[in-house]
Design a protein around this nucleic acid. Structure first.
Lengths: 155, 155
DNA sequence: GGCAATTGGTTTTATTATGCAACCACACAG
DNA sequence: CTGTGTGGTTGCATAATAAAACCAATTGCC
């Protein structure tokens, strides 16, 4: 098999995420979905992508439980694609990607939008990683450990 | 040309990030680099990827200013790939991906590692997005705005 | 210094994914 | 029941990915 390697059985949680959303379009589809888009045609024209690719991506996102198909909404017989909680849970990932661009992009002038607090329109802070006790952590302050005792039960 | 669409000129900061690190391997390479890997062979055996692909990816990451080639380190004549500040800046993205897996993966039992505070070995908190005044924000509390005043110049 | 193994790739070839365009079925408006 | 828009599918061309073979320079070892 010369398939594109799959990370499905991988033990690394990052690889597992990438398995689901680590391709060119999925995160952009999710981004638009968070923005409120729901219909096939909306995604297609907004993102300017080929329709067959969009079909494949939407199906994969549904299979992964990130999107769900809802029967209607405006009364028409067509279906819509709406984010599941798992899909909405990608928000921090999108924020992290955005902030990385904002901080390190070579031509930041080309970035068109900023993320703001809806209440007052002021920019948000950078994402913060904190210890249990609230202490701010940088990469150097962290390590990975083997996951502890798989809590006797189904999951 | 039927090239894979590039997001290079895109105004969306998320698309811009994906342009640099939005492929299957780049983030995993960066992850290993954050772990301390530096040599071609280390990446190749640890990630189990084809060498030609690794070559292409490493070059792309260097071109994007995420990795830099350093002349030596252990005295040998070979070169090493080390993270730049821009590369280390991807840490929150990796954390976000990890936490998304931890929270939403269908088979969480298969996840082998957890991210902990180096000081006491306790798990870290979830990434927090805060307003200027420190208020915790969820996705619904945010919007995007056009970027303000592009500071008079060419752009 | 001589020789084999290792490192860090390149080349070749096969397979898969992506992208465009054309096509098509169904819903809906009249 | 005819025309139009929505939501796809199908073919074909091209690009990316993968595995394996190959190769040059660097090391390790004697």
């Amino acid at each position: 098999m010369v398939k594109r390697t799959s990370f499905e059985g991988d033990a690394c949680p990052i690889a597992r995420s990438l398995e689901a959303i680590g391709d060119w379009w999925s995160l952009l589809i999710i981004r638009e979905a968070l923005f409120g888009l729901r219909r096939f045609g909306e995604f297609q024209t907004k993102l300017g992508m080929a329709k067959n690719i969009l079909t494949v991506r939407l199906r994969a996102l549904v299979d992964h439980g990130i999107l769900a198909t809802a029967p209607a909404s405006d009364g028409s017989a067509y279906q819509e694609y709406v984010l599941t909680p798992k899909g909405r849970g990608t928000f921090p990932i999108l924020v992290a990607l955005r902030q990385w661009s904002e901080e390190f992009d070579d031509r930041p002038a080309e970035i068109a939008t900023i993320l703001v607090d809806r209440k007052n329109g002021r920019p948000v802070r950078k994402l913060e990683l904190r210890a249990e006790n609230g202490r701010l952590l940088s990469q150097a302050d962290t390590t990975v450990k083997p996951r502890p005792a798989p809590r006797r039960r189904s999951a």
